[in-house]
Amino acid sequence: MKTLRTLLSLFAVFLTLTGCSHQEDGQTNGGVAAVVNGVEITQREVNYLYQRSAAPNASPEAAQNQRRAILADLVRSELLAQKARAMKLDKAPDFTLAMYDARRKVLAGLAQKELASQVSPVTPEVAREIVANNPRLFANRKFLVYDEVLIPGVDEPLLKALNEKADNGASLNQLLDELNAKKIRFRRATRAVASDQIQPAILEVLSRAKPGNPLVARVGDKFSMLLMLDSIVPVPLVGDAATQTAQMMLMAQKRNAAISKEMATMLNSAKISYFGEYAEKYDGKRKLSALPTPD
Rank of each mutant, 00 (worst) to 15 (best):
D177E: 15
A181V: 01
R5K: 13
A127F: 15
L80E: 10
R68T: 13
T3K: 08
Y274E: 00
D73Y: 02
K287P: 00
E114C: 00
A81W: 12
Q118Y: 05
A170Y: 11
K182A: 06
L71P: 15
G220E: 00
L176W: 13
F14E: 07
A257Y: 02
R44I: 00
R191F: 06
V238R: 10
T16Q: 05
A127D: 09
T245D: 06
R218W: 01
S269I: 02
S120L: 00
R191E: 07
Y50T: 02
A170T: 11
I202T: 11
V46D: 14
M251Y: 07
S9K: 10
Q27D: 09
D90Y: 09
Q174S: 12
P294Y: 04
T123R: 04
Y100S: 03
K142G: 00
E125K: 15
T265A: 12
E178D: 11
A84C: 02
R67G: 04
G153S: 05
N47W: 00
R104E: 09
G239Q: 06
S120Y: 11
S117I: 14
P124V: 12
V126H: 00
Q197N: 12
I259G: 03
T123F: 05
P121L: 14
A108K: 11
P236Y: 07
F143G: 09
Q51M: 12
A55W: 03
D230I: 14
A181M: 12
L176K: 01
N168Q: 10
L226F: 00
I198V: 13
V32R: 14
F143R: 15
D90Q: 06
T6S: 11
E125W: 08
M263G: 04
S53G: 10
S224N: 03
D295M: 00
L74G: 01
N163T: 15
Q174F: 03
A181F: 13
S59L: 13
M266S: 03
S53D: 01
S9H: 13
E78K: 12
Q64M: 01
L250V: 09
Y48N: 10
L250R: 05
V32L: 05
N65L: 06
L291T: 07
D155H: 15
K142C: 04
D283R: 07
P211G: 12
M228E: 13
D295P: 15
F143Q: 08
V36M: 13
N268Q: 05
F186N: 08
A62P: 01
N37C: 03
E61R: 05
G30Y: 06
Q118D: 07
N57V: 02
S59P: 15
A34G: 04
R85Y: 11
Q43P: 04
L110M: 12
V106T: 13
Q82G: 09
A257R: 13
A111V: 02
L179G: 11
G220V: 10
Q27G: 11
N180T: 09
E125P: 02
A290Y: 08
M266C: 10
